[in-house]
């Protein structure tokens, strides 16, 4: 009975959300996704800047977080002594427990000035020829948001990878060493190779988290509605624009458009999480 009620609740939520955004859906249709203008005054709405912002920040975050998370997971479970590993494990989990508003606050007052004064000159002198790193930096912007996201999703990915690595029997690892493999070769053969799809599952889970993260991003991304190529420029994500504009939406169409974005965000995160679970499920019977 209760189960039915919960399922009904979920379905009704989806319907309510759909109803909320119906005006925007019927006015802009599917073209909303690639509309580039977001102007509450002229009631013209398009979500492309936010969709691109979400994709860029999540992608850059994954690029940074994936190798780090996997190495940390390996370090904890295979390389360092058990006790130290346990402590580092708790520290990594603690990153996940820090409220995102605190990340945001730290991002504004500590990370953003660092990006503006230290990271940007360095990036410009080394990679400045790329359009990705051109234009002025205000500190806050896409890069700051990506870095914060990377920090926030490291625990998700690395905890999951540790779970995956844990399924490898000790004897299999010893067998590799007994064949004259170095520690690195042992890890490559018996851990990384069979865990590949499991690790992908973890990365996709991390992506799901990055896509939906709101406050920390809203505070450091700069909230610009314009499209920009440079990751030093300010931008916006789907989640951040909702957080910033929802409570003071100026008119019904503005609100409906934000609802539409929420609906898109919901669909995308559900799909990404579903994909992660599918990969994990496909992978697990092999062990």
């Amino acid at each position: 009975m209760l189960a039915i009620a919960i399922i009904m609740l979920i379905v009704s939520l989806a319907i309510l959300l759909f109803k909320l955004s119906l005006p925007a859906i019927s006015k802009f249709g599917i073209g909303f996704i690639w509309g580039q203008v977001w102007n509450p005054i002229s009631e013209e709405f398009g979500a492309l800047p936010f969709i691109l912002g979400t994709l860029t920040t999540s992608f850059v975050a994954l690029l940074i977080a994936t190798p780090l998370s996997i190495s940390v997971a390996l370090f904890i479970s295979e390389i360092c002594p058990k006790k130290i590993g346990h402590i580092i494990g708790i520290f990594v989990e603690m990153i996940a427990a820090v409220p995102s508003i605190v990340f945001g606050l730290w991002g504004i007052f500590s990370l953003a000035p660092w990006i503006q004064n230290s990271a940007t000159p360095f990036l410009k002198s080394t990679l400045g020829f790329l359009p990705l790193f051109q234009g002025p930096s205000y500190g806050i912007g896409v890069l700051a948001a990506s870095l914060i996201l990377a920090i926030m999703i490291i625990p998700t990915i690395s905890s999951f990878c540790r779970e995956v690595f844990r399924t490898i029997p000790l004897q299999t690892k010893e067998a590799a060493l007994a064949l004259g493999a170095t520690r690195f070769e042992m890890i490559k053969i018996t851990i990384l190779r069979p865990s590949f799809s499991g690790m992908i599952g973890g990365v996709v889970l991390g992506l799901g988290r990055a896509l939906g993260e709101t406050m920390a991003v809203a505070m450091v991304i700069g909230n610009s509605h314009r499209l920009a190529i440079s990751i030093l420029a300010p931008g916006s994500t789907m989640a951040s624009v909702i957080a910033n504009e929802y409570a003071e939406a100026s008119n019904a169409m503005h609100m409906a458009s934000l609802g539409y974005i929420a609906l898109l965000l919901l669909v995308v995160t559900l799909m990404v999480n579903g994909l992660a679970r599918f990969i994990i499920w496909k992978w697990s019977p092999k062990i």
């Binding site: 010893e174 064949l179 018996t190 062990i287």
Partner: peptide, 27 residues
């Protein structure tokens, strides 16, 4: 020295995600 001393364990330890041929030749 380990490559000169083979070892077989209590439970079979074929390397997962590796074919029979790769298993034999990995060492």
């Amino acid at each position: 020295i380990r490559k000169n001393i083979g070892m077989v364990f209590q439970k079979p330890t074929p390397f997962p995600a590796m074919s029979i041929l790769d298993n034999v030749l990995i060492g």
